[in-house]
Simulated scan of single mutants.
Amino acid sequence: MEDTKTNITPFSFELVAQDGSARAGILHTPHGDIHTPIFMPVGTQATVKALTPAQLQELEVQILLSNTYHLYLRPGPDVVADMGGLHKFMDWPKPILTDSGGFQVFSMGTLRAIDEEGVTFKSHIDGSTHRFTPEFSISIQEKLGADIIMAFDECPDPQDKEYNMRAMERTHRWAERCLKAKTRADQALFGIVQGGIFPDLRRQSAEFLASLDFPGYGIGGLSVGESKADMLATIEVVTALLPENKPRYLMGVGTPYDLVESIYRGVDMFDCVLPTRLARHHAAQTLQGRMNLANAAYIRDEHPIDPLCTCYTCTHFSRAYLRHLVSTKEILGATLLSIHNIHTLLELSQRIRESIINHKYSELRQELLRNLEQ
């Protein structure tokens, strides 16, 4: 990796290279540098399921994501703060990003009620009533102590234009309130662009949030049921209007195809639960498609998941052994498949980064798309 500059501010973003709209950069944070484009594994409840922090470091994970909603409910932000903050609590020395809790709250349907001030909702655990406002979301995230925190936004159905307009305008007002509520200088607050699949709303949202000069920007409200064509078209609209000197984070996206096509359109950062969720359901991600390791076809297959993969799983174990683990419901199966799936996305990100620096991403993209499934 490239040498980084000295005497930098706690948060800054260097654009190292561009190839068309695709970008390679370095995001400097108090807990280390993040080389973009990058995939962020999700540790919803301060743990990436089935993996230890040591295993994540062996995978060369650069940044993890944790979830404000879940950590608010259990163990509670005051507990995390009293234990020294999220980095110490989960023994993770590198950067952490926390989402605002907005997506989880707004996905509850009838269990929540929205007003101008915030959202009242019922816990999915015990049915108890809680309330999030922009100010309270920032307060929780400050107690958790992540390097990057997210503005509290409203994430509506991407197809309903009238509601998207109202939700977008409320998201903008809440973004201003989040900026005013933030007190910690050692955290970077990202704004979130909304507007559904409607280009005019997305332009309006991107332009308004860019005027607030956030240190980075999330692209929210995608990969929630819209078509792939609509998702990619929306990304093109948004990235064209966001500041070039700030990182762009596409929230909740994590297939190889989505990374390849979104990076091509100017996205820098991604997160998704998909790699570990697939692993717990016996599936391996590869650049040739998904493999279901529960399939009887692998019962005597001596090959690794991917003969070209250099992860711990593929360099030590056969498909036959992995099928044995998943068919006997051994926990190790989820661990080994999670290692492979995360490695696949990290390696893909690094390979794309190198091609951008060498101005060869267009060729690599065409090579990858010949095999990738949407």
Rank of each mutant, 00 (worst) to 15 (best):
I263E: 00
I38M: 12
I149M: 02
T310E: 15
G25K: 09
G25R: 09
E60Y: 05
G84F: 14
G252C: 12
T313E: 09
A210D: 04
A146D: 08
A181C: 11
T29L: 07
L308T: 11
I339D: 00
N245R: 08
G109W: 05
M251G: 04
T52W: 10
G333N: 10
Y264K: 10
R23I: 04
N164C: 15
L274T: 06
E162W: 00
K88S: 10
L368V: 09
M1N: 13
D271S: 12
R290Y: 06
R353K: 10
A296T: 15
T313M: 07
K228R: 13
M165S: 11
A284P: 01
A50C: 13
F136P: 00
V273L: 08
S205T: 08
S12H: 13
T4N: 11
Y257Q: 05
R300K: 15
D258K: 07
G218E: 04
F121R: 01
F190K: 01
Q374N: 07
F198L: 05
E236D: 15
S262H: 11
S205Y: 01
K161P: 02
K5L: 14
G118S: 10
L232K: 01
K228Y: 06
L337E: 01
T255N: 05
P304K: 01
D268E: 12
E14V: 05
R173D: 13
P156G: 07
C309D: 12
L189Y: 11
I114S: 02
P304Y: 00
D33M: 01
P304G: 08
E14M: 02
Q350V: 09
I138V: 14
A113N: 14
G191I: 13
C178E: 07
A283I: 06
D186R: 12
R277G: 13
S349V: 10
L15N: 13
V42Q: 04
H87V: 08
I8R: 13
G84H: 15
K228E: 12
E302V: 05
G85R: 07
E135F: 14
D160L: 08
F89H: 11
P41Y: 14
T183A: 11
D301Q: 07
A54V: 11
F132W: 09
R319I: 05
T313C: 12
T6A: 13
R265D: 10
T110L: 11
R248V: 13
F132G: 00
H303R: 14
K143C: 03
G32M: 14
Q62I: 11
I197A: 03
